[in-house]
Structures are given as structure tokens and as C-alpha cells.
Simulated assay, not measured.
Amino acid sequence: MYFLGLGVVLLLLKYLEIGPLADWSWWWMLTPFALAVLWWTWADASGYTKRKAMEIEEKRMQDRRNRTKSALDANYKNKKR
């Protein structure tokens, strides 16, 4: 995602002819997009994307379990009185 942000900023600066970027070749402006494609290709091929999604899902499930346990514990303590 950082590569895309950098690419958009570079494109805007080149298009608006701001600073020294106005003199740079268009290939330099397109390089971050190529790097983003390479990153996504590697992330999908290596399983990085799926692993991160599974970590997020596991954290969400663990948070839900903790909320349920604390709610059950609070109900148990209230009934005991």
C-alpha cells in the first residue's frame, strides 16, 4: 500500500510539474506501481497474505472468547450473591 501512495504522490507532482520531479522521466513515476505489483505477487505466492488474514481472524475470535468469558464470569458472580 505504501508503494501505491508513493506512486500517486509522484504522479501528482510530475503532472503538476512541481519541483525537480517535473524533469524526471515518467518511468521513475511508474516504478512504485511496478514495485507494488511485485510485492503483491510475492505476498500471494509465499502465503504472507493468507497468514496475515488468519492472524487477524484468530485475534478476532480470541477477543470474542475473552468477552464471552468475562460476561459469563460477571453473571456467575452476580447470581452467587
Score class of each variant (00 low, 15 high):
14 K>L: 02
58 E>D: 09
20 P>Y: 06
43 A>Y: 10
3 F>Y: 10
79 K>T: 09
81 R>A: 12
78 N>T: 12
54 M>W: 12
31 T>P: 00
1 M>P: 07
26 W>M: 08
33 F>K: 00
27 W>A: 10
80 K>Y: 10
32 P>G: 04
7 G>N: 04
32 P>V: 00
11 L>R: 01
33 F>E: 01
30 L>C: 07
28 W>K: 00
34 A>L: 14
78 N>F: 13
54 M>D: 14
45 A>M: 08
67 R>H: 08
50 K>S: 15
18 I>N: 03
24 W>Y: 05
61 M>W: 08
63 D>T: 12
27 W>T: 04
25 S>G: 11
31 T>A: 01
5 G>H: 05
79 K>Q: 13
65 R>E: 11
73 D>M: 13
75 N>K: 14
50 K>R: 15
59 K>E: 12
17 E>H: 08
80 K>S: 10
38 L>Q: 02
6 L>V: 02
18 I>Y: 09
50 K>F: 13
4 L>R: 05
47 G>A: 10
33 F>T: 00
7 G>W: 02
27 W>F: 12
50 K>M: 14
41 T>D: 07
66 N>I: 07
33 F>Q: 00
70 S>C: 02
9 V>Q: 08
19 G>C: 05
49 T>W: 12
76 Y>F: 13
56 I>T: 12
70 S>T: 09
23 D>L: 06
42 W>T: 02
8 V>N: 05
27 W>V: 08
60 R>G: 01
56 I>V: 14
10 L>F: 15
52 K>M: 15
61 M>Y: 08
68 T>I: 11
41 T>P: 01
47 G>H: 10
60 R>Y: 08
20 P>F: 09
35 L>Y: 00
32 P>L: 02
46 S>H: 06
12 L>K: 03
72 L>D: 14
76 Y>Q: 11
77 K>H: 12
9 V>G: 09
53 A>S: 11
3 F>G: 03
65 R>K: 14
53 A>L: 15
58 E>H: 10
52 K>V: 09
21 L>I: 12
22 A>M: 06
65 R>Q: 10
16 L>E: 08
71 A>T: 09
66 N>E: 14
35 L>Q: 01
34 A>C: 06
1 M>K: 04
39 W>K: 01
73 D>P: 01
71 A>W: 05
22 A>T: 05
71 A>S: 13
51 R>F: 13
72 L>E: 15
73 D>E: 14
74 A>E: 13
75 N>I: 09
9 V>R: 08
20 P>C: 01
53 A>P: 00
54 M>K: 12
62 Q>V: 04
54 M>P: 01
21 L>V: 10
4 L>G: 11
44 D>F: 06
58 E>T: 08
27 W>P: 00
4 L>C: 13
30 L>T: 02
14 K>W: 07
81 R>T: 13
10 L>P: 03
39 W>E: 04
12 L>D: 11
20 P>W: 07
64 R>V: 03
78 N>I: 09
44 D>W: 07
56 I>E: 14
4 L>I: 10
67 R>G: 02
13 L>T: 05
67 R>V: 02
11 L>K: 00
60 R>F: 04
67 R>E: 10
53 A>C: 07
11 L>Q: 03
64 R>D: 11
6 L>Y: 01
70 S>F: 04
3 F>S: 04
15 Y>K: 06
81 R>I: 11
19 G>Q: 04
22 A>P: 02
67 R>D: 09
71 A>N: 13
20 P>H: 04
